[in-house]
Nucleic acid binder design. Sequence first.
DNA 1: CCGCAAGATGTGCTCGGTCATATGCCCCTC
DNA 2: GAGGGGCATATGACCGAGCACATCTTGCGG
Lengths: 337, 337
Amino acid sequence: MTTPKRRLPVMADVAREAGVSHQTVSRVLNDHPNVRADTRARVEEAITRLGYRRNLVARALVTKRSRTLGVVSFDTTLYGPASTIYGIEQAARTAGYFVSIVSLKSIDSDNVRDALGYLTEQGVDGVVVVAPQRSAWRALENLPSGMPAVAVEGMHNACVPVVCIDQVEGARLATRHLLDQGHETVWHVTGPADWLETEGRITGWRAVLEEAGRPVPEPLAGDWSPRAGYEAGKSLAAMKGVTAIFTANDQMALGVLRALSEKGVRVPDDISVVGFDDIPESEFFSPPLTTVRQDFAAVGRQCIEVLLRQIDTGPATAERLVVPPGFVVRSSTAPAR
Amino acid sequence: MTTPKRRLPVMADVAREAGVSHQTVSRVLNDHPNVRADTRARVEEAITRLGYRRNLVARALVTKRSRTLGVVSFDTTLYGPASTIYGIEQAARTAGYFVSIVSLKSIDSDNVRDALGYLTEQGVDGVVVVAPQRSAWRALENLPSGMPAVAVEGMHNACVPVVCIDQVEGARLATRHLLDQGHETVWHVTGPADWLETEGRITGWRAVLEEAGRPVPEPLAGDWSPRAGYEAGKSLAAMKGVTAIFTANDQMALGVLRALSEKGVRVPDDISVVGFDDIPESEFFSPPLTTVRQDFAAVGRQCIEVLLRQIDTGPATAERLVVPPGFVVRSSTAPAR
DNA sequence: CCGCAAGATGTGCTCGGTCATATGCCCCTC
DNA sequence: GAGGGGCATATGACCGAGCACATCTTGCGG
């Protein structure tokens, strides 16, 4: 008959087994130098014999450090957030931290506030907020004081440090590339209103057109989905004089390509298209998509770096770390005829 | 001057503020019935006045329930895992649980074992393993005993309950659809070796062909990436007599479409193509992709359901919950000429 | 008007670690 | 050979909640 109540072994059990005090066990576990080699060996042997695992919950209670970071994100099935979170998780784990995720279906200030509240109760050592919406942003203003935090893609007048990819520059690269190809002007399919990326990309696009003294067409409103791109593409195909389109992300660019193809418009011969993100699929669109590359993994890593610095050395200045975008030329753009 | 050491308020502070004992505060927090209404009100007021938040770490220590679930997953940037995890997270949070994620770069038994170890130390109440590889599977055999667990897409002789989408049936649907269109046989581009999905899809595909007495072509090895699909597509385009291709996922199907298009092969006129997953982009491929739909969100929900049942009512029988696949006919398939 | 049960509230211990401090020991130096 | 310093180890308090149980109220029936 096996022991009926198979309670997990605790430090005291190990101590008894090794014939030492629980404090010595603790020292072994935490690599304290002042433990005699043979004692250490005896303790370690007892640990493996009993299959002991330290209880991080108890440890967290007294150290007030859970070694867990919270992540609040919007729709983690989108490529951008998913990649960023992957980067965050990898970097966090390398640094010895766990990651606890809350992904919101819909973003509003209350949701974000609630999520941050849950995470606080749970005792996370810091939070990264991947919710690049204007509305989400307001919730950051009354973070539990003293809680280290970092935001992805935040606003300038930040109360917390921000890590972001230079959206404006990315949009400039895309637009300038199209103008350089000899296009008179560039149409733009935007992301959803309220998103900071949407605003940044519009800003960069508009700036380049204005600097070049070109007409600025009315942008078409999208929502990141291929369907929105498809609808926008149908409209654009029906319009006169459209020769270049800058789409705010790759998925919508796919929709645009589809719509143009259905209307018999050839890309890039009749119309050039540029996307934003460089998702793994873009290289294999028809035609392969010229696009702005975002290094999401780098963003994730930077977030953790900034966050850990805050945790270790106190509140940081509200810095702003900008990751430069890249540009990938493929076959969806060509000189204007 | 503000208080220099602004320690967070604890239950004792609230108790003092409200003129009751800490136990009464605890009762209010846990919605115990036996608290007089005015006492409750006084406590609640004290709570808001002090901005008190309960410390879940301390609570977890004594209740031995962290209300956190662990998730071990492989590459969370892939659409399938990402969607599944999203479903898991939503369902978990609805049930009042947090989700702690470990996403592995590479899968092997040791990695999974380590991840499960970390999660155990952290005191999760249960784990869901989204690592549908044969090698990962072995690590589940020596789970810390008594740890509730559930696996996504596991093997039959399971030691833990499994939630999965019927891969074999999905592949059958795809293959039968193509045979019904009058194609003599169907070529197959597989997922990476070692993945259970890969095996299931091969099994279903082969079974239908054999049942119909058709020749079974040598499958082409892929790895889920569009590039692999592209390479396979180039090979297939160069082969004689290929009229129907079943690709093990949509991303590879995209690569196949690209390769065929480059070689001047028309889809679906010359060759029909079917994918697997129904990612949001598939509808807008050129042509829109006929594919097998997987309801990842449902898988996530089921996982949590099974897991919570285990947590609440003890170890479950090693059940196996199968979510049926769907089939979406679009424009990438047509009758054989 | 008392007794008793149910309701309301308080007391003290516990969970499993870490921290501060005490204690015993050995060795070295003057 | 006494004193002191450093090392190895032990002891007890403590983190912030919940739980079991004790105690005090209250209401109601006889």
